[in-house]
Amino acid sequence: MFDEEEEALARINEILLDENLKSSEHYESIKQFADQFYKILRQTKKLVRISDNQQKIINENNEKLTQLTEDLSREQVLSQKLLLNILPAKVAEELKMMGQARPVLFKSATVLFTDFKGFTKSSELLTPNELISELDQYFTFFDEAISLFRLEKLKTIGDSYMCAGGIPIQTKTHAVDCTLAALHFQKFMKTQSESKKGTGREAWEIRLGIHTGPVIAGVVGKKKFAYDIWGDTVNIASRMESSGEPGRVNISKDTYESIKDFFDCTSRGQIEAKNKGSIDMFFVDKVKEDLLDESGKINDKFEFLYNQIKETEATETKPFVERRKNLPDNRDQPTERRNNLFKYLSI
């Protein structure tokens, strides 16, 4: 079955060697025909061999191509991940599509600054490795936490951490989100501080400052892209941090107006801020009593109020007091649109 050509060639040779045929008057034309047939058979065999070789090489190349495509996809996922680690998804997409991400004015955003008290002292007592490892531990926690609160990390400047809410996707809850994040940070710092007791290691304290106002956000420059925000709101938020106290969340009046229905705050009156004159400041004390359940966790009423603001993100905001009147009577009644964050959030 596999040697049909060989058998045919052997048969032709036998016929040509036949003495009876040699004496035939048709011998020459038969011989010519046999030669031609032999040539065709030889060509066919070779053609099959060449085709097989080509197919083999094509298959090998296909395998290499598949491998390269897989490698490329993996690289693309990695670079996309890296890009999204540097820029917000919306901005990265705009940058990829348009080649630039133009700065955008956000009429209302909230900016949060943190700074560690004790960092300078620790930098004298700890080795650089220990110092950076400690700082990394806190900033890693902040990084993970802010994504829960729909905030965008902007940068760290030394031991200062800066993030904002309401950018690059506009939200209505940014002031509440930033305040919740600030209290969450603060709670973490307290936990860390308690775990250090008796170890002889210096506990770090954190100052947190928040301000709400307009910002311009975007990417500038051509190298080492960084999403950043600009405007007086940023300066005032920074002043809120520097004019605050360790272990406290210091906010401006603009932020206070946006969060006062959720949090108990203490007015500090007007306080002098560098280059800004006197500014009204408030300390955020805690989440309002009626917005917490027995175990101190945020309850459904908080979530209901929060979701009412969130729902207006695409529509016009009603006066908040009116919405509060529509609260359900039973504060323990589960809300349909339960925010997963609130299931475990304890501030």
Partner: peptide, 10 residues
């Protein structure tokens, strides 16, 4: 280009 090389050899 192994394919071209091998075809030539054949």
């Amino acid at each position: 280009n192994e394919m071209a090389k091998e075809s030539g050899e054949e």
